[in-house]
C-alpha cells in the first residue's frame, strides 16, 4: 500500500512584491508503507517545501498529494492526515512545549482528545520506543540535544502516526546525539514498521535508507538505492552534494587507476575492498 503519493506537485511562495518563485516544479513521488526514504538536495532545492506537503502544512498549487488515498486539499481530512503523518523539525528547542518530558509527549494525544488512561499508555510506550522512559519526569530544557530530539520524536509517536517526516533532525546535534537519533529512526522503521522520510545533509545518514531521492530546482533528479545513487560521484557533485567519505576515497583511488568497486558505502566495505587490492 502507498503511504504518500505525490503527482506532479507544483508550488511557489508569493512574495510581498507580487513576485513568485517556483519552488516545486512537478514533483511525482510515491512512498510505500514501511519504506525508509532519504531526501537529499542542496539548500533551496525544495525538499523542505515538499516535506510540508506530506502532512498538509502546505497545499499544492498544482498536482495532488494523497496520504493513504486522502487528498491533502480536502479540509475535513486534515485532522486524519496529520495524525497519519507526523513531522519532526531541525531545532529541538522549537518543538518542545512543556517543561516536563512526559507532559511534552502527552501534548499531542491530549489535543487529539485521547482519553487520559490511553494517553498514559501512549506516552510510556513512546518514551520507551526512543529510549527516554527513564527521563520521563525530567525537565525538558535540561536535556542534551540528542535527548531533546528523541523526546520530540516521542511526542510525534504518541499520536500513533503511520509515517514520520524528519527535516534535518540531526543538524544541530553532536556526534553522539546524531547516533542516538539515527538509531531511534532505524529502529522505529524496522521494528515498528513506521514509514520514514528523512531529509538530511549528512550522506552517511542517507546510506541507512532503503531509497535515496535527490531533488534539484524543485524536481526529482535522481532516485535509487543508496548504492545506486552514491556510485554516481560526479553527478552528485554537480548537484552540489557529496558522497560518504569511504565512497569518495574509493572514487579518488579509482581515478588513479586502482581497481576498486564503485558502490562502496561504509567504512567496513571500504577497508575490505582496499585490503583485497593490497598485496
Amino acid at each position: 500500500m502507498d503511504m504518500i503519493t505525490a503527482t506532479d506537485v507544483r508550488f511557489r511562495y508569493e512574495e510581498e512584491s507580487g513576485d513568485a518563485t517556483a519552488v516545486l516544479n512537478g514533483v511525482s513521488l510515491t512512498i510505500r508503507q514501511g519504506e525508509f526514504v532519504a531526501l537529499l538536495g542542496h539548500n533551496g532545492c525544495g525538499k523542505s517545501t515538499f516535506a510540508k506537503h506530506c502532512n498538509a502544512m502546505l497545499l499544492p498549487l498544482g498536482g495532488q498529494v494523497l496520504v493513504r488515498d486522502m487528498d491533502t486539499r480536502s479540509e475535513d481530512l486534515v485532522y486524519d492526515i496529520r495524525s497519519t503523518v507526523g513531522m519532526v523539525l531541525q531545532n529541538p528547542d522549537n518543538q518542545l512545549v512543556s517543561t516536563i518530558v512526559e507532559e511534552d509527549v502527552a501534548f499531542g494525544p491530549e489535543n487529539l482528545g485521547v482519553p487520559p488512561e490511553e494517553i498514559r499508555a501512549r506516552v510510556d510506550e513512546a518514551l520507551k520506543a526512543v529510549g527516554m522512559y527513564d527521563y520521563r519526569k525530567h525537565a525538558a530544557h535540561k536535556l542534551s540535544g540528542g535527548q531533546k530530539q528523541r523526546v520530540a520524536i516521542a511526542g510525534v509517536l504518541a499520536m500513533k502516526p503511520a509515517c514520520i517526516v524528519l527535516d534535518e533532525p540531526t543538524a544541530m546535534l553532536d556526534p553522539q546525539g546524531r547516533r542516538e537519533v539515527m538509531d531511534t529512526i532505524c529502529r522505529l522503521n524496522r521494528e515498528n514498521g513506521i514509514t520514514i522520510v528523512l531529509i538530511t545533509h549528512y550522506m552517511e545518514e542517507a546510506v541507512l535508507a532503503d531509497r535515496v531521492v535527490v531533488m534539484d530546482e524543485g524536481k526529482i533528479v535522481k532516485e535509487g538505492t543508496p548504492r545506486q545513487v552514491f556510485s554516481q560521484v560526479e553527478e552528485l557533485r554537480a548537484l552540489e552534494l557529496d558522497v560518504p567519505q569511504p565512497t569518495e576515497l574509493c572514487f579518488a583511488l579509482r581515478r588513479e587507476g586502482v581497481t576498486l568497486p564503485d558502490d562502496v558505502l561504509t567504512v567496513e566495505e571500504c577497508a575490505a575492498a582496499l585490503l583485497q587490492q593490497l598485496p
Binding site: H42, N43, M172, H201, E240, L241, D242
Partner: peptide, 8 residues
C-alpha cells in the same frame, strides 16, 4: 550547521 555539503 544546516548548510548543504557544497555550502559548508
Amino acid at each position: 550547521a544546516g548548510l548543504d555539503p557544497r555550502g559548508r
